[in-house]
Design a protein around this nucleic acid. Structure first.
Lengths: 150, 150
DNA sequence: TCTAAATACGACCGGTCTAGTCCGATATTA
DNA sequence: TAATATCGGACTAGACCGGTCGTATTTAGA
């Protein structure tokens, strides 16, 4: 259902948090996890993966923590999502090597592929800086429910 | 990973097939399934759901089959996907009623919500007619593999 | 030097979802 | 009446995901 994983959610929340905290140095996994009600160990794992992907810088030991590795405006939502969930693949056959085993007869590969690119563009244009510039989502906007069946 | 289900894939393939076959009357589930190497029973189930959602019209009995319920240009990829996979929800908390249990502290709801809308727009702009106007994907375009790490 | 707090990382586990199968009922045509 | 469809629910094996646990390593400070 075109849904991104919870880990990706957590990653984006953390990235935004770190963008807002960037002047105050680094934040620890525990700090972020507690603030957003995320299981600490899971948060840690997510942050670690972001470090491995070069989106975050970490500092070990007491008073250690995480920082953004680049300017918030230089990090896109797509970067974060792909760091956590792997490459965005709309179709199962769209593997890195382009193998389409049984899908030799598939008739929608190319169009879906273009759809994928559009989605990727949308995700790529939205940066962490953009997230951070938002109001911190004051109250749970119940009024804004829309009819999903377009 | 923002991937749509195989059923949705099958649905799109069938819809395109039916768009191309529209002048020749209807096609049976068996017919379509065999042409694209899809398990017949699964194909049938997908087609039935498309009927229930009003995207296809069915005719029972011998020489029965399926037809598009509307003009190909009037059916979007979003329609098909949502008919099969349910509403497109980028985040888990985006349920129909807008409930966000633990996510009271979530700080990325609104921006992700806007991302969802952009994706939905992209899917909504691509119609079955557009799929059908494509060349039928001749050979598996191996050359067109791109670097997914944007 | 010792201890506490932090990152790093892999193994594991239970629940959920997905793809696919099976079966029976109904409808339509020849 | 027989063959061929659609219809629709029940079921299953396997993959995947969210989350947990345990342990090693690094670092700052008392």
């Amino acid at each position: 259902m075109l849904r991104l994983s919870k880990k990706a959610d957590y990653a984006l929340m953390a990235m935004k948090h770190l963008a807002l905290q960037s002047d105050r140095g680094s934040s620890s996994a525990r700090e972020i996890a507690e603030q957003y009600d995320i299981p600490i160990e899971l948060m840690a794992k997510v942050l670690q993966r972001l470090v491995r992907r070069g989106l975050l810088a970490s500092h070990q030991g007491t008073h250690g923590g995480y920082q953004l590795a680049r300017l918030p405006a230089q990090i896109s939502v797509a970067d974060v999502i792909q760091a956590i969930d792997g490459p965005v693949t709309v179709t199962a056959c769209t593997t890195d090597d382009g193998r389409c085993d049984q899908y030799a007869k598939c008739n929608v590969r190319d169009p879906l592929w273009r759809v994928r690119e559009r989605i990727l563009t949308a995700l790529g244009e939205c940066t962490i800086a953009e997230l951070a510039s938002e109001p911190p989502t004051p109250a749970p906007m119940r009024a804004a429910v829309l009819h999903t069946h377009l």
